[in-house]
Design a protein around this nucleic acid. Structure first.
Lengths: 347, 347
DNA sequence: GGATGAAAGGAAAACGTTTTCCGTATTTTG
DNA sequence: CAAAATACGGAAAACGTTTTCCTTTCATCC
């Protein structure tokens, strides 16, 4: 019926010019009391709210920031969004989000569309570097989260190498010998996780086998379980690319008659809230998902405020081991390798 | 450095007018081959993409839809968003989302800001009806999801009464006598769930006690557990407002030495994916979260396409019981009440 | 009490599009 | 081949703001 009132309507009703109304709204200039009153009255009566689109056109600012995540079904990402959302709100910004659903082609398309509607982008993506250049070419401030970007573009990541290394040390300390890593190669941190685990385990002379998962999801954790469990020699421990895989894995392992942690230890990465409620509770590494979103958003706002991206650089969050019940000492631990024998305390 | 190319740049480079370029882009008119070629070449060379804001100004369409959810940390809502997102994408729309974090004041503010940037809104909210009017006054198509809205405004809900009733019947059939409902009064479906459960249980002469939870979260499920479990008489079964509460509840029940389902049955509502991986696996009612988002979005698009909201009305999804392992027959079932004795088959 | 300056308010251009209306070139028709 | 119809392309207004100048008003100062 009645159309939205415009600034023109307000100006007419208040008997002033539209410029005056605009300046009043943005408080970019002072006015005499009667003028202020008239404008306020007109705004109140018309229930006027300025049109953010029109404002954006001229200011070039949209008041929104975009976040692209890979899978909203993964609590790691929802925690991240929650953190990002909080900081965005504190700055008076809206959050626009896209779920790229692990689809690279779609991702680029969505980001392209999104980029014109936002003042900046947080992308949490496994795209190759050459595609990153195209994102940067969009001309908006960008922060890459969950991975380290090339020099000059701000990013925030988790020390994936350290995370994997501390898992390795735990497993070694507990006497695990034959270890499987359920990797997800397309993911950026996968390489570092693999490397951390491998270097740790090799230095202690333990064996590492890699299996590949097609998606970092519950369903894939379930699917891959039987192939791991049914191989000639069951591994002592399984390290998963993330908690989703680990939880799926544990679910079917149980149904296959494997008891965790007695027969096999399982460890995840991410520390999603549900890991506390599986059976057994999942040992994992906390990567501060929520903080990841917060810090990414802070880096983004520094850019939006005009700071040079090159001066911002990278940030790295420290992982923290979360011991729960899906890992346990092996019954008869191996003797430690010779070169470390001096450190051994108990026979 | 170099600013984004505008339609003016394209027109200049192609040697045509901006009107021509615009019409070419929107394919609202045919052109001769040489003109088309020139425009295409210019667009390609400049890497021109039209500015959606400017377009929105004149067309009045933004190409985005907004979804307001209560808590992105709850998988029920993320599933809903996933469903909504899929349909939105199919229609070539972006999804803008806000997490209201269960905060009503914030919700209204966020929706107000959002409403100018989108062509329609899906709101999944526990706001009172008088506030709903203010949302409708925003002048955008709205669909309320997860609850039934007053006549004339489209909404999509789950049959909460039926969901609770079928839980009641299950528990009765399994011989539970003393039942607790962990309710969350601020939520809209809570009333119906309570009523369904109550009417069912009363008709079979079973007792129902209500406990109140402060938030529908894992943490609250954990907190409330001890008061329920430690009361003079432990209940036979606990029905939770949602799966999050149920999962939290089961977690601490276990640590308090209660074994589920032997000592106590627990049932949730929502059927979030993680319910399959708790110990024991959670018996629950599936409410088609993803479909909820899809249908809500479909209703929204029908409005955006111009259909009269009053002609759209409500839609109700059917719940479905998902039997898993957190409920079990009581050791010695009660005799069925007299008036139903004829139906009993086994002694 | 007139010159000086500051403060208050307005006119108009701009942002990047779409769309309506009109003129011209080209084809079709009788 | 002239006339009528059609196809093609452009000029300009519009969308709802912000912002950059101006102009006017008024208090201040000597």
């Amino acid at each position: 019926m009645k159309n939205k009132p415009t600034i023109r309507d307000v100006a007419a009703k208040a008997g002033v010019s539209i410029a005056t109304v605009s300046k009043f709204i943005n408080s970019t200039q002072r006015f005499t009391a009667p003028v202020e009153r008239k404008i306020q009255a007109a705004i109140a009566e018309l229930e006027y709210h300025s049109n953010p689109l029109a404002r954006s056109m001229i200011t070039g600012k949209t008041g929104s920031v975009g976040v692209a995540i890979l899978d909203i079904g993964n609590p790691h990402f929802t925690s991240m969004v929650k953190g990002a959302n909080r900081i965005a709100l504190e700055h008076g910004y809206n959050l626009l989000f896209v779920d790229t659903e692990e689809n690279q082609a779609r991702e680029e398309e969505l980001l392209g569309a999104l980029s014109r509607r936002v003042d900046g982008l947080i992308v949490s993506s496994r795209m190759p570097e050459e595609q990153m250049d195209r994102i940067l070419a969009l001309g908006k401030p960008v922060v890459f989260s969950g991975r380290l970007a090339p020099a000059g573009v701000p990013s925030i990541g988790i020390d994936a190498y350290a995370a994997a290394y501390m898992i390795g040390e735990l497993l070694v300390k507990q006497g695990h010998r034959d270890i499987v890593y359920l990797g997800f190669a397309p993911a950026r941190p996968d390489t570092e996780r693999m490397r951390g685990l491998k270097e740790c385990l090799e230095s202690y002379g333990r064996s590492l086998t890699r299996y590949e998962v097609r998606e970092p999801t519950l369903a894939e954790g379930e699917r891959v379980c039987s192939s791991v469990v049914l191989r000639k020699e069951k591994p002592d421990a399984v390290v998963c690319y993330n908690d989703m895989i680990a939880i799926g894995f544990m679910g079917v392992a149980k149904s296959l008659g494997i008891s965790i942690p007695e027969d096999m230890s399982v460890v995840g990465i991410d520390n999603i809230p549900f890991g506390r409620f599986t059976s057994p509770a999942l040992t994992t590494v906390d990567i501060q998902s929520e903080r990841l979103g917060e810090e990414a958003m802070r880096l983004l706002f520094r850019q939006i405020a005009g700071q040079n991206p090159a001066d911002i650089g990278h940030q790295m969050l420290e992982p923290r081991l979360v011991m729960r019940d899906s890992t346990a000492m092996r019954a008869q631990p191996l003797p430690l390798p010779a070169e470390r024998a001096s450190r051994k305390k108990v026979p």
